[in-house]
Design a protein around this nucleic acid. Structure first.
Lengths: 152, 152
DNA sequence: GGCTCAGGTCGATCGCATCCACGGAGAGTG
DNA sequence: CACTCTCCGTGGATGCGATCGACCTGAGCC
């Protein structure tokens, strides 16, 4: 993980569809060299996926909610996590310090669907209570930040 | 925005680096047809970007925090937003219903940097108070959900 | 010095991206 | 109904990029 790898990661965070030839020009190596480096970044787990970022409203997901979860005192956290994983509306799941063990980000089409989701969450074994905040608008999301000299 | 467009979006959300030829095979059109459809999805704002998803720890961003912001009663929301936009550590910014006007997701390298960030936020004109929760681990993030028949 | 290995470059081959000309289905109209 | 316009697609051609294999070079080590 040297400075060139870092540049490659930064370039691909900005535009995942850059060709190897273009990446090679940007970092000053040959295309095969870049190909090999990127391959290692992928198999080494640094690059996890390449995703198109889509306007949620355009695919019928106009309602965004952030939901804090308090667990039962006797809950099995792994089971709760597994139950959350089965719910496709939950886009992100963070395990938090504090009273609320989890913070979930969910996207649904309508407020009615959000209501159903909350009911489902409250019924999930191990969940003691939920606290839902509704995002009126997403100002931005997953903005890549410029890379530091960095670790490793 | 028909069923084929929806498939294309779903395929690209799963893997942004699929070739047009491969997309064409998956949806049963020719490569030029797919090329044109994807081009329209991009210029129509449905597809906003293609991004590599990176393991944050690998690039020196091991600390994730979610920060609620309460605004001053006389704050100018646009100014506050603009100030947040200048802070690169803020990856996502939601405008919320409730007492806390914003919810921010930020990533930094160390707890010390998080402390500096919180200080900076509290000093920002228009910010009355902040409430920070630390994510001990990210179970998953930005998981694409399978697409509904959908609107539009 | 001479081995070995990691990580490059170069050259060749094949597939893909992309441009262009052409064709067919469906809607609106006389 | 027949005409035409438009949209959306196909097929062919061409140049670029992905990717493989052979070879090169410098660092570390015996």
């Amino acid at each position: 993980m040297d400075a060139i790898d870092l540049s490659l990661v930064e370039l691909l965070r900005g535009n995942a569809r850059l060709s190897y030839a273009e990446l090679a020009r940007q970092v000053g190596l040959s295309a095969p060299a870049v190909h090999e480096r990127v391959g290692k970044l992928e198999s080494g787990g640094v690059i996890r996926a390449y995703r198109a970022e889509v306007e949620p409203e355009a695919i019928g997901l106009g309602v965004t909610a952030l939901i804090g979860i308090v667990e039962d005192s006797n809950a099995d956290t792994d089971d709760v996590l597994e139950a959350f994983r089965q719910i496709p509306e939950i886009e992100s799941c963070y395990f938090m310090a504090g009273v609320e063990s989890f913070l979930l980000k969910a996207r649904v089409g309508t407020i009615a669907e959000l209501e159903q989701l909350i009911v489902r969450l409250n019924r999930t074994p191990g969940v003691a209570s939920t606290r839902t905040g509704i995002a009126l608008s997403t100002k931005w999301e997953n903005r890549p930040q410029p890379l530091q000299p960095a670790a490793s």
